[in-house]
Design a protein around this nucleic acid. Sequence first.
DNA 1: ATTCTGTACACGGTATACAATCTGATAAAC
DNA 2: GTTTATCAGATTGTATACCGTGTACAGAAT
Lengths: 229, 229
Amino acid sequence: MLPKLEIEHPKSLPAIVEERLRNAIINAELSFGQALPEDGTGLALGVSRTPMRQALTRLESQGLVVIVPKKGTFVFKPTLKDVEQLASFRLMLEINAIELSLASSPETTLRDMYHALAAMSAVRDEKGSHAYARGDTAFHESFFINCGNDYLINAFKTVSGRIAALRTHLSLPRSHEQLKSFGEHKAIVTAFEMGDKSEIATILTAHIMRAKTTYALAIEESAAAKTEI
Amino acid sequence: MLPKLEIEHPKSLPAIVEERLRNAIINAELSFGQALPEDGTGLALGVSRTPMRQALTRLESQGLVVIVPKKGTFVFKPTLKDVEQLASFRLMLEINAIELSLASSPETTLRDMYHALAAMSAVRDEKGSHAYARGDTAFHESFFINCGNDYLINAFKTVSGRIAALRTHLSLPRSHEQLKSFGEHKAIVTAFEMGDKSEIATILTAHIMRAKTTYALAIEESAAAKTEI
DNA sequence: ATTCTGTACACGGTATACAATCTGATAAAC
DNA sequence: GTTTATCAGATTGTATACCGTGTACAGAAT
């Protein structure tokens, strides 16, 4: 018997570009509405148009960029309607995912939630860093990783980029919100440990709807700021 | 104020190819696992590899084709696990969509459901035609069209191709199922008219789970047939 | 006869060239 | 001065050439 000597295949260029752009959008290196020309002018990635094009096509299906035929590709720009609909949709996915996780593999889910919670706790005071947001993302991902339904996971993946982008773009300046947010996360874990589904749903609803309000305010503010100028 | 005079832009080649391939997969013109080379060998679409590639990339994100690096692109091949997970996921989406439709625009939803029901009724006896399946698809789409949440619509769109493909590929030979199916659709409309949410959920669950069982059987049969040979 | 290996071929990965079209600016006409 | 016509630049749309990799088949060695 031969020992397993698996090697990792080199990632394809489109995959690398996609990941890089995704992170750039999520971490606010690129701003909403920013143009992303196919030839990569300005973004110093040394790839030709073909892989770039493919990456942009994939990002479009994740809603992170908007491709306007014959005009160009731009980073998505969230509207108030987007924020509201996204929050409702996300709530639906998360409630289903967390209930499935509770039913099928509560131990590993709990472990993953604790991990994320610890990471968030460690960086709670670092203002302006994206570490807390990453922990937040990881916390919510733990429901999906353990829910056991690949389609549900996939549905979350296609919106998680937008959710994460909203978080980093719109919630940084109000870091006192982090306190409330952290408390809610802990409450979710507690309710999960008790196996109280309706309590989980209640807290999750409050949590996500509060986040929605925060983002909605931020969007209105930035819209107001624009008309002032 | 000017009247709105929107024109439809000519569809891009990738969009045409995507739609054509999508329909071909859904209508069983292509079989599961079939290879789809980028240069279109065999498929008489006269386009070059670039738009073909883009179409395949988009179809991959809808789960209709599988792209294996350096090997090729193939029509997806549903497994038992797929069918089960897809049914659960679909059920979740549909229950949410139909409840939203009931809350926000019951009249137009009802109208759309009646339309689809009439179309199904008209072709109920044509065995082997895809007309009934199309009506079925239209019926379920009416929840999403009227639910008012674009993300929910989008999530459904990304799985509707697979659902429709399962329908045409795996349910045709058992056309006596159509009778039961038709009755369930009518029952859904009745419950919707009464505004009875829990009744809707009950029927919808039974409806989708029965479809799941049908597909699961068909897959097991075709797997058994293969090992016999 | 079976297994291994070498080679030819086919296909996807990427880069690039050329065509089509949109945008914005500038100039001309009213 | 306002409107329209024209043109230049830029950017996407599409086709294709080249390269690397995977696969299949045939031939050789055991």
